[in-house]
Design a protein around this nucleic acid. Sequence first.
DNA 1: GTCTATAGACAGATAGAC
DNA 2: GTCTATCTGTCTATAGAC
Lengths: 197, 197
Amino acid sequence: MTTHATSRTDRRRATEARILDSARGLFAAKGFDRTTIRAVAASAGVDPALVMQYFGSKRGLFTQAVQAPSSAPRTSEGGEAGDGEALLDHLLVTLGLKLGGLPDGTLAMLRSMLTDPAAADHARGALDRQIAGIGDALSTDGDAGDAELRAALIVTTMVGVTIGHQLLSLTTLRDAPADRVTALLRPALEALAQPPG
Amino acid sequence: MTTHATSRTDRRRATEARILDSARGLFAAKGFDRTTIRAVAASAGVDPALVMQYFGSKRGLFTQAVQAPSSAPRTSEGGEAGDGEALLDHLLVTLGLKLGGLPDGTLAMLRSMLTDPAAADHARGALDRQIAGIGDALSTDGDAGDAELRAALIVTTMVGVTIGHQLLSLTTLRDAPADRVTALLRPALEALAQPPG
DNA sequence: GTCTATAGACAGATAGAC
DNA sequence: GTCTATCTGTCTATAGAC
């Protein structure tokens, strides 16, 4: 009977996934501190104690929620793009202005990184890694000493636009079509991608 | 005796100022939620009840702290700069990479705006106003329909760099001299300031 | 006016019934 | 395995002693 259509393990996994989805949504909307285990449980239609049983602690739930693959479309995180133009295209897509926004896991991280030290560490690590990757890509063609600094400015620029658009809903940005935003942003990023000389 | 060197009112104002300074520092470092009245009182060397007595509530303390003029140098907030080049210079100064960082009041707002709805409203309003101001300045010389959108991207870019530098302490940005950052950022902002055609 | 004591609420985590 | 009940801690805010 363990090969049944919906075994015990299957049901458990399904419940776990539902909890993680609810957690992602709430963490993305309200951040780590203001999201309660109770609210996650209510949203997922389970008992609060069950959430603890599955994930051990609120921190454990957060970590799993932001790391686990969500049902939303995945925008590749690593900066493993080709060269020049392709890199910028890749970055502009990563911005998530197309396809209706970034996955909730990413939004949860962005939302919490300024107030939760653990989230800040995680985000710092991820951004530093992305900066290093882009820095390498930038220093191959047209070299300069500050490729990594330019990469950092590219990344932080995109973080800023993302925050303004997805998390703050600045009226001007929210009402603008994605194509227009990317079109206007492209020359600016190109300026950063090119060596200063 | 009311004209004494340090009257009762003077002492009260001094204590109030000390509390506000402590509050600004803690709000800037840890955000609204994680900053407690107790911690502010301890940092200022007063009784927690006194803080409540003076400011009514934690929210009142936060509002006063981020709005009141601090002892730190003030970077003009309004976007009342001249034209073109002067505007960019003004913005690059506002970035606060020079003069050792932004005032704690501003940092407290930035720190809390993603997780505290009241702070988010405040920040949204301030940023929207700044965007409108810059948008007006951009549409005077060299007109285009999306001046305000370009202004929004300029502002969010600076927000992103500020967050990466002051609040996340991204290693690449923290170790870079301010001149280098502003020098690299200038062409990017110029690209955004110019009409797409 | 300033501080002590505490009310009142809410959260995360745990123990044990079923 | 799942849920009820509760423990423990922390916070804002208030009431009242001094």
